[in-house]
């Protein structure tokens, strides 16, 4: 499997990026319809965990402090976890869009973040799974950490594994809301992902 990853060509990488862009376009469209607001999903980077700086803590997304980090599993042929990093107010700016009242208590504040995590990972993973033609199901989201960095929470776990890391930035400009998603695809799903990319390249 390691051999497969090492031979990820420039073409394959471009294809994956292209595929991600299509998937995120669809996801953004779905999210926009759901919350009746324009949203932006961009994919600044795709890489293998092994390609990150020798020390993951040198990687900006891993070392930036987050007020809250949530996680949600996706399971099936496409396996992995989505990590979402929120700023100080969590997803409070999106309360009204998500059907919450103003003046959230602590539990509502947490639940709102979990709800946002759920729709974000649902939309992104669904888009990705459709493009790759792989089925995916979901576990319930949960809060992974507060006032921490991704490196502190998952740095050593990710380092050990050959994980495909997709960085996604989510923005709702009208509500000045932004958060970062990290879609981590587990190594056992990588052959299927690469197979799907190759299929796509052949179709061209």
């Amino acid at each position: 499997m390691a051999a497969l990853l090492e031979t990820l060509t420039e073409d394959q990488r471009d294809a994956l990026k292209e595929l991600m862009n299509i998937a995120m376009g669809q996801a953004a469209d779905r999210l926009a319809r759901l919350i009746d607001t324009l949203v932006i999903l961009s994919v600044p980077s795709i890489r293998l965990a092994t390609e990150c700086a020798p020390d993951l803590s040198d990687c900006p997304i891993f070392s930036a402090p987050s007020a809250y980090i949530t996680r949600q599993s996706f399971l099936g042929a496409l396996r992995g976890e989505v990590l979402v990093c929120f700023e100080q107010d969590g997803a409070d700016e999106l309360a009204s869009l998500m059907g919450f009242d103003e003046n959230l208590n602590t539990d509502e504040h947490d639940e709102l973040m979990l709800d946002v995590t759920n729709i974000l990972s649902s939309a992104c993973i669904k888009g990705l799974a459709e493009q790759l033609e792989l089925p995916a199901s979901f576990g319930a989201p949960s809060i992974l950490a507060t006032n921490s960095t991704l490196f502190d929470k998952v740095g050593d776990v990710i380092n050990r594994d050959q994980t495909l890391i997709l960085e996604i930035c989510f923005k709702v400009e009208s509500h000045s809301f932004t958060c970062d998603l990290l879609v981590c695809v587990a190594r056992e799903s990588l052959p299927s992902v690469i197979e799907a990319i190759n299929r796509m390249l052949e179709d061209l």
Binding site: N118, S122, K126
Partner: peptide
């Protein structure tokens, strides 16, 4: 969200 995203909610 279930209707639009065709996925689970919790």
């Amino acid at each position: 969200s279930v209707l639009e995203l065709q996925t689970l909610a919790f």
